[in-house]
Design a protein around this nucleic acid. Sequence first.
RNA 1: GCUCCCAUCGUCUAGAGGCCUAGGACGGAGCCCUCUCAAGGCUUAAACCGGGGUUCGAAUCCCCGUGGGAGCGCCA
Length: 466
Amino acid sequence: MTVRSRFAPSPTGLLHIGGVRTALFSWLYARRHHGVFILRIEDTDRERSTEEATQVILDGMEWLGLSHDEGPFYQTRRMDRYAEVIQQFLAAGHAYRCYCTKEELETMRARQMAAKQNPRYDGTCRARTTPRAGVDPVVRFRNPLEGSVVVEDVIHGNVAFDNAQLDDLIIARSDGSPTYNFCVVVDDMDMKVTHVIRGDDHLNNTPRQINMLRALGATPPVYAHVPMILGADGAKLSKRHGAVSVLQYREEGYLPEALLNYLVRLGWSHGDREVFTRAEMTELFDIRDVNKAASAFNPDKLLWLNQQHIMRATPELLARYLKPQLAALGIVVDDDARLAGVARALQERAKTLKEMAQNGLFFFTELQGYDEKAAKKNLTAEAVRPLTLVLEKLQALTDWRAAAIHDIVNLAAAQLQLGLGKIAQPIRVAVTGTSVSPPIDVTLENLGRETTLARLQRALDYASRH
RNA sequence: GCUCCCAUCGUCUAGAGGCCUAGGACGGAGCCCUCUCAAGGCUUAAACCGGGGUUCGAAUCCCCGUGGGAGCGCCA
């Protein structure tokens, strides 16, 4: 049997970290078992669904490389099919028309709550055979009255629900439009979904869905209800936690693989391993090993993982990602090889690509003066001699490579009997404007001969005056 | 209120009755390396929610509390 899993977000809010984690687990499961991954957009709520949210889902999934094999399917385009099944249910007696008004239902609920009972539809219209004038009926599923439903969940084990606790849920509104739980059931059946991996906030919906599936004569899929992700403060993830949309992580310079790596480790682990490539995740992840408890989102660890992935990435790949980050800062770089060189120099010292772009700014733009503190400390009269000597030696250098530059700086230090810091720091401030950069030889190599010499000369002038 | 779910360092987790003096990771503290910043290495503080059982033995199994979460919509 081919595994068929799906991710079925509703575009009523922007896709966030929690949704992505569910998508990831579902995707990993399909990939691991060489199955099919389906993307379905649950947009039956036309009021709240937005085009933007749909686009974020599509773009986000693509950015993360969570590719789907089928879909995206849109529920709004399957209305005829839902209507058909509703008729089928009605004809078979699995559903009935209910003429209770919203007001009546509300009073009933209030009464039940007051009597400390589980608020549920009392079945008034179950046996009704005639319409009620002036009321557009809804359609309700005739849930079994007795017995229990056992959800065989891969993560939670067997969870039993008494049918007596469930009620006859509405499957079609009075305007005829189908509702969520019903659409899910029809879709999962039609799309031959074998594994439903979703947030455990849906665990309570599952017995109803199973009952409908059975009424349809379908075999319920395997369920895996994964725990939710909480905000860093342990509270439910919401807009308050900053991460509005996954795409924000792209903007902030996170590598898709790093985000996925972080997410997969929430609720799952493999020995003492922390860093996983996408391929390793696919190979090692097992939905059965997923925890039951919710976990809090930890931005620091995500940042650390991002750095780990940046360090392991090829400079060429980083260069590709760096381009839009630099563009955001108003800089366009055409020289891919040079950009890769810069990325190589910076990849051990940036937690995000955004940070990397900022740190690498001096390679591509004119210096906007020196950092005050750095200049005050390093571009002094004391620095004139070492800077002069290094400038002379560099002017004579034809083989502009890190190794040769390294030798020159060391030689100059030895000649002047100065510690390396006394010579490297002034150079650093001279060419970068700040006291922080990659190793000085690597920095100069990537900066290029002309720029280096010009900046050294300029710093020398500055130092002479201070 | 009713139903369901969950519970190990601040956080993510290892732990499927003795291997636990509870391991790893992020973050914190300290040290080393060092031309800066990083990276890396080493050291260190830090947890089994509480109470009852079961057992020779419990973080692990059972029960009851407590705390957190979800559902109970003509929302998804």
